Simulated assay, not measured.
Amino acid sequence: MFYQKMKKIGFLLLMVPVFYSLNTASAQEVIGDVWSVEKANDWYAQHDWISGANFNPSTSINQIEMWQDFSFDPETIDRELGWAEDIGFNTMRVYLHYLVWARSPEGLKNRMEQFLEIADSHGIKIMFVLFDDVWGNDPNLGEQPDPIPGVHNSAWVESPGHDQRLDEALYPVLKAYTQDLISHFDGDDRVLMWDLYNEPGNGKNPPASSLPLLKNVTQWARDVNPTQPLTIGMWIWNDSFDELNEFSAANSDIITFHDYNPIDQTKEVVERLQSEHNRPMICTEYMARTNGSKFQTHFPYFAEQNIGAINWGLVSGKTQTIYSWDSPRGYGEGFYQRWREEVREVYPWEDHLKASEPDVWFHDIFRRDGSAFDTTEIELIKRINEEN
């Protein structure tokens, strides 16, 4: 699928060294009152070291299924956040979707309140993500597709969507969504921060075509001026993304970034960001075992550097992110179409997942029964969290 190919391409591009300077805040457009470096560092110092995962309950295939009224699953959320608490995680990064809000603003906010109550009972704060350029480009409400066997994130959806992000007629709705949620939870210390836009430009030609929406989202959020910090994560390092990265860095109170590289390349990115911004940093996506991004290499390093560490994936489930970006493995050309037309009922996703678990998971920590993929990882995570 196109968006999966783009994620793979994205990883290959991440392997390219960082040659350009990100220290462009003086020249780059700055919208609203971005926190001073002093305020950002004071805020960060008031929190325990931030560690956690990107969270989607195992029973949800995407953001829409997580948050719609008929598929919202507090029982699973409570159970799985309990496992996160057990290993010392204190933060979850959680994606929202504007369509769920558009259907029922009060309904979504009520479910967010319930979710925050559950998270708080486990000592976990939440970083909400408002917009996303990854991966399915035509999101819709209602029943979501079943997973395609063996395929990484086969039904994850963009917010607002590939074409919708360019539609200025939709901006009033997106503005209301942004400002309603940020205003409603302004001052709520269960919300750690607001991640305004995940991986802007991912899969877009040109990537900078997402910049108009990104700038508007930033303006809408700054107009609210919440007590929680705002951030826009940088995720890829090449000339096509210079403008997006420069804007993101200049307009983030706290610097956030994604990096799925082996540790030596991750250190290069960290050192560049540290030297050029002197702001607190959180890696909001990392840990892809078969790419060389592992808990054993990255988690202690992030702790040593006082960089927040939020890996992709907590519990293996319908997103199937135990498989790599270039999955499926061994199904051949045309498999996707054959799956949809011929064999969807033959392989219920739960049975297929059990039968085809890869020897080395790409993402995720726990199975749906709470057992760990790797108990040595669990011991490491617990130890580092206890020490910090």
Rank of each mutant, 00 (worst) to 15 (best):
Y98R: 10
E199M: 08
I310G: 04
N245H: 03
F19G: 06
L181I: 15
S58F: 06
A250T: 07
F131G: 01
P160H: 06
G142D: 06
E65W: 02
M15F: 00
N140S: 13
E285T: 01
N23P: 04
I322A: 08
E38Q: 15
D364W: 01
F373M: 12
L174V: 08
I61L: 03
I232S: 01
Y44P: 00
G233I: 00
Q114A: 14
G203Y: 02
W83G: 06
G334H: 07
P328C: 11
S293F: 01
P207S: 08
G233P: 05
K204N: 09
G203F: 03
P262A: 07
P358Y: 00
T76S: 08
W220E: 07
K204M: 13
L13H: 13
N388I: 05
N216Y: 06
L273R: 05
L130G: 02
E342R: 09
F366Q: 02
E341M: 10
E29P: 08
Q4G: 13
L273S: 00
R279P: 04
Q320H: 08
D42T: 14
A119V: 06
K354G: 07
P229V: 11
H258E: 06
V173M: 09
V360L: 15
P200Q: 01
H363D: 12
E85H: 14
Q219E: 13
G82N: 05
G142F: 05
A176Q: 12
T59Q: 03
N278G: 15
Q164M: 13
L230Q: 02
Y286G: 08
Y44D: 09
N385D: 03
N238V: 12
V30N: 08
P212T: 10
I236D: 01
M287E: 12
I50W: 04
D69P: 04
K125C: 03
N238A: 06
L12Y: 12
D133Y: 00
S60R: 08
L181H: 03
I282D: 06
W101Y: 15
T376I: 11
W312P: 02
L130I: 11
Y95V: 13
P147Y: 00
E38N: 13
W43P: 14
G88V: 06
V217L: 08
S104Q: 08
F295P: 01
V269D: 00
F362G: 02
W339S: 08
C283W: 05
E80R: 04
E158T: 14
K318S: 01
E386P: 01
K8V: 12
L213F: 02
N311I: 11
G330Q: 07
T284M: 13
Y331Q: 14
S26T: 14
R367I: 01
A355N: 06
N205R: 13
N306M: 09
A155W: 10
M66E: 09
E276T: 10
R165H: 04
V94L: 12
P328Y: 05
E158Y: 00
W235N: 11
V269H: 07
K39P: 10
T376R: 12
M112C: 09
E106A: 12
E75G: 08
E350N: 11
A25E: 14
E199Q: 10
Y260N: 05
A221M: 04
N306I: 07
V270F: 09
L230M: 04
I384V: 15
P206G: 02
P358Q: 00
Q68E: 03
L170D: 02
Q28P: 09
